[in-house]
Computed example of a mutant assay.
Amino acid sequence: MGVKLEVFRMMLYLSFPVAMFWISNQPEYFEEYVVKRKREIFPRNEEEQRKELEAFKERMRVRWEQQLLKERSESEN
């Protein structure tokens, strides 16, 4: 009975983590629990996000133009 018991224990030790991994990675589970919870915690405010993105783009454009002007002025000297 020793070998059969060891085989059973080994199958149990290996099957439990694999089963938990398989169950927790089902798309329905992910959608239901993770995505819905994230949307509850971080609700979308589309208008505010759009304004923040536009302001960020403008800051990056200004920074890029200043860097180009700086490089140009250094190359002229």
Score class of each variant (00 low, 15 high):
M1F: 14
G2D: 13
V3M: 11
V3D: 10
V3H: 10
K4S: 13
L5D: 06
L5E: 08
E6C: 12
F8N: 07
F8I: 12
M10S: 14
M10F: 13
M10C: 12
M11L: 15
L12P: 00
L12R: 06
L12N: 04
L12D: 02
S15V: 00
A19Q: 01
A19N: 02
M20C: 13
F21Y: 08
W22H: 04
N25G: 02
Q26G: 03
Q26K: 11
Q26S: 12
Q26D: 08
P27A: 11
E28Q: 07
E28K: 07
Y29D: 01
E31V: 12
E32R: 11
E32N: 10
E32D: 09
V35D: 02
R37G: 04
K38M: 15
K38E: 11
K38R: 12
R39T: 07
E40I: 12
F42R: 03
R44Y: 13
N45W: 02
N45T: 02
N45F: 05
E48V: 07
R50H: 10
K51G: 01
E52A: 15
E52P: 00
L53H: 09
E54K: 08
A55Q: 09
E58K: 15
M60T: 08
R61E: 06
R61K: 12
V62K: 02
V62N: 01
W64Y: 14
W64S: 12
W64M: 13
Q67T: 07
Q67H: 11
L68W: 03
L68S: 04
L68Q: 13
L69Q: 06
L69T: 01
E74A: 04
E74K: 01
E74M: 03
S75K: 14
E76A: 09
E76K: 06
